[in-house]
C-alpha cells in the first residue's frame, strides 16, 4: 500500500547533491510530490524536505540508498503524523469578482488566509496550512477567477526529541574508534 512520506535529508552543501538524490527516486519510479531546500539549524548543513508517496518497504530502501551518499549526513523518514508541517500558497484573484458583497471577508476569515495586496485589478491572498486546506481554498476561489496560484513545497519539523547535533556527535565518536580501512 502506498502512503505519503516526508523525507528529511541533512546534507553537505556539495554541488550536485540534489541530482544524486533525485536519481535514486527516479530509478525506483517514485514521483516527487514536493521538495524544499534550505539551510538547517546547523551552519553549513543543508536540509532537504522531500514528499513522496510509496510503500513502506520501498521508502526504507531508498532512504538507505540516500544515506549511503557520501555527502548526505542523515536521512529521516516520517509519516505525516510524526511531523509538524506546513505549506504556503499564494493566490492572485481578480478584484472584480471577489469584491461583490462580503465574499472576500468570509473567505479570508473561514480559511485563516491573509490579504497581502489589493489593487483595482487583483487581490493577492496567502494561505499557510496543509495541502488539503490549500486545495479547498483554491476550489472555493475558482469561481471568482484565479489568475495565478503557487504552492510551496513542504517544510517540516519532527516531533522526535533527538536532534541532528546529537547524531553528528555520535558519528564523530564512532570515528574515534575506527581502524584503518583494510583492503586485500
Amino acid at each position: 500500500m502506498k502512503q505519503e512520506f516526508t523525507i528529511s535529508l541533512f546534507t553537505e552543501d556539495h554541488i550536485g547533491i540534489l541530482g544524486q538524490i533525485t536519481i535514486i527516486l527516479t530509478r525506483r519510479q517514485i514521483n516527487i510530490d514536493s521538495i524544499t531546500a534550505s539551510e538547517s539549524a546547523v551552519t553549513g548543513v543543508q536540509l532537504l524536505t522531500i514528499v513522496v508517496s510509496t510503500t513502506d518497504e520501498m521508502i526504507q530502501k531508498v532512504a538507505r540508498q540516500m544515506e549511503k551518499l557520501v555527502d548526505v549526513m542523515k536521512v529521516f523518514v516520517h509519516s505525516s503524523d510524526q511531523i509538524i508541517y506546513q505549506e504556503i500558497a499564494l493566490f492572485k484573484i481578480s478584484t472584480k469578482g471577489l469584491m461583490s458583497g462580503n465574499v472576500i471577508d468570509h473567505i479570508v476569515r473561514d480559511h485563516h488566509a491573509r490579504i497581502l495586496e489589493v489593487s483595482p485589478e487583483y487581490i493577492v491572498l496567502e494561505k499557510t496550512g496543509h495541502k488539503t486546506e490549500i486545495t479547498e481554498l483554491l476550489a472555493q476561489l475558482e469561481p471568482y477567477g484565479v489568475l495565478q496560484f503557487a504552492r510551496s513545497g513542504r517544510v517540516a519539523i519532527t516531533k522526535q526529541v533527538k536532534e541532528l547535533n546529537s547524531y553528528l556527535k555520535e558519528m564523530d565518536e564512532a570515528n574515534r574508534f575506527k581502524t584503518e580501512p583494510t583492503l586485500n
Binding site: M73, N175, F177, P181
Partner: peptide, 12 residues
Amino acid sequence: CDYIRSYNPHIP
C-alpha cells in the same frame, strides 16, 4: 584524509 563529517565507514 581520515575523516569526513557526512561519511562514516567505520560502523561500530
